[in-house]
Amino acid sequence: MRLRCAEELLFRALMVLSTIAVLSGLLLIIAVITVKGAGALSLDMITRLPTGGYYLGKEGGLLNAIVGSLLLGLGATACAALLAIPVALYLQHDYAGRRRWANLVRMSLDLLWGIPSIVYGAFGFTIMLYLGLRASLLGGIIALTLVELPIMARAMEEVLRMVSVELREASYSVGATRWETMRAVVVRQALPGLLTAILLAFGRGIGDAASVLFTAGYTDHLPRSLLDPVASLPLAVFFQLGTPFPEVQQRAYAAAFLLLALVLLVSVCSRLLTRRLSRHAVK
């Protein structure tokens, strides 16, 4: 009996310690980045382009990376949504008449979800070579779309599936077609969840570095067309950290902080949004 209680206590202690270790480790990350990054942040940092080259120039800010990341993230999220919504609809019972096909698509999404983003980067680059593109905003958007698509499609599928069969059948029973039912009932009912899925994918996309490394390139300037190379926040961290100059490294810290803040903001927003919007849905 004594022994059994001791075992219980031992494992309970181990569990509490593990939980504390994990949480404090993760919170430590946020704290370190915030302290380092907030100190490096200034108005110049977010409103000016770097001068004298991002790698060597000690003056200027991160505007190129901020704008670039937003363009990449928004573009890729829009593209991914255009692809993910049909796929998520297809995976509903209403469309996937033959379950076998639906399962194949679902499995493909599962596998795509697991593919490392560096592989998407390499794949995207070979596609670009094939099309004769150079590192550009367009290339970055293509690669990021591939990264975001499985995340978004799977999240959307789950959300759509929560719309009850009864509700769909209520629509069918008044003579609506599948398309009308999807548009008017299912998508509307699942709207908060769909937006959350989009935000989730946006947050994931904007922070991804490996996929844009070769496809979007890096530059000091703002892009003037889809075919210009473009900077991004994750790469701003990566490249500028590698310089020997502390002034330039400051830009890396600031970029990391901005990135972290952006991702956390998106994540919190999506949570609040879900809570706010789902009040209107039929429970």
Binding site: A209, V237, F238, V263, L264, S267
Partner: peptide, 24 residues
């Protein structure tokens, strides 16, 4: 409290983890 925290932390970009590694 912890569960949403874990979800949020799962979304932190990898360069941020990398920078943390470099700094600490």
């Amino acid at each position: 409290l912890v569960r949403p925290l874990v979800d949020v932390l799962a979304g932190i970009p990898s360069v941020v983890y990398g920078l943390f590694g470099v700094l600490l």
